[in-house]
């Protein structure tokens, strides 16, 4: 901000100190989780050990992973988050394009409904939707997530529609008009002109949609996993939610002696369940962090 020579050393120092302190506090739960997930029971009870475990111990991860059915849950999480995300991309981009390009009568009402449906808690439509899904026979299958996403009513779809709307508004109208003069129809100018230039919006929506579907537990449990666990579908987050129950079940069936559930094991389970997304985040960090800049959702 401004010229650098006016900012004294003290100010710079304070900012760094503050950022590092707050950053440490901010990541404290994660650090705590990492360190205690590797502790053995002895380490946990030993009050002299606070941060560093006496030895690297991966036994906790093995037990937590096995009790959570890690690989199955990982695969199913990817499907439950991935397929609706693709549907979200399709439906929200089309809707956003319609809102940005065409001045059809009633557009304002549609926008109002979209914003209202963002603010409205999901619980209000949850129960009839549940009944509807069970009538359609898609309850406890992934279709319960795919179908609404295909029609622009997926989880947090209003945000994605608004992102696309904002993005398509920035594309110069001249481009579309030029393609029209060249003889392209509406769909052609959408697919050939608008879509290719909307890559940043697609990346942003894909990332956020994936992450939000992945982390959703309430609706996933209701629609896909089943409240009593009727279906075979599960996600890492739900497995974590039922961690204690899963673990005691595992304990009884495990062939090699499993320890009792302790803090280390639950922390190991938590770490396992956030690990896939964290790796994804570290790989794609630039896209995540610059996402909001690029979609210009904050530009008026």
């Amino acid at each position: 901000m401004g010229s650098k020579d006016r900012e004294g050393f003290l100010k710079q120092f304070t900012v760094y100190a503050l950022l590092i302190c707050i950053g440490f506090i901010y990541t404290y739960p994660i650090l705590h989780m990492v360190s205690s997930s590797m502790m053995t029971l002895d380490d946990l009870l030993d009050s002299s050990i606070k941060w560093l475990p006496s030895s690297l111990n991966f036994e906790n991860f093995r037990q937590a992973g096995e009790s959570m059915n890690f690989w199955t849950a990982l695969w199913q999480s990817a499907v439950i988050a991935g397929v609706p995300t693709i549907c979200n991309l399709l439906s929200c981009s089309v809707t956003g394009y319609a809102l940005a390009r065409f001045d059809f009568p009633g557009k304002k009402i549609v926008m109002g409904i979209i914003i209202l449906s963002f603010v409205l808690p999901a619980q209000i439509t949850m129960i009839p939707t549940y009944v509807l899904y069970s009538k359609l026979g898609i309850l406890n299958t992934v279709w319960a997530f795919i179908l609404p996403a295909l029609f622009g009513q997926g989880f947090k779809a209003p945000i994605f529609i608004l992102i696309f709307w904002q993005f398509f508004r920035q594309i110069p109208k001249v481009l579309i008009e030029a393609s029209r003069i060249d003889g392209a129809g509406h769909f052609r100018s959408f697919f050939k002109v608008a879509l290719p230039s909307a890559a940043p919006a697609f990346i942003t929506v894909a990332l956020f949609s994936f992450v939000w579907y992945w982390n959703e537990s309430y609706l996933t449990e209701l629609y896909v996993h089943g409240v009593y666990g009727q279906s075979n579908w599960t996600t890492l987050v739900i497995q974590l939610d039922n961690f204690a129950a899963n673990f005691s079940g595992y304990q009884q069936t495990a062939t090699n002696a499993a320890t009792n559930l302790n803090e280390s094991i639950s922390m190991a389970g938590t770490l396992l369940s956030i690990l896939p997304l964290t790796i994804l985040y570290l790989v794609l960090q630039r896209h995540f962090v610059e996402s909001i800049d690029r979609t210009g959702i904050t530009g008026e």
């Binding site: 982390n215 959703e216 537990s217 961690f243 639950s266 997304l277």
Partner: peptide, 12 residues
């Protein structure tokens, strides 16, 4: 943003 979800927060 990546890791916030109900069960994880509950666990922590």
């Amino acid at each position: 943003v990546i890791i916030v979800s109900g069960p994880i927060l509950g666990m922590l």
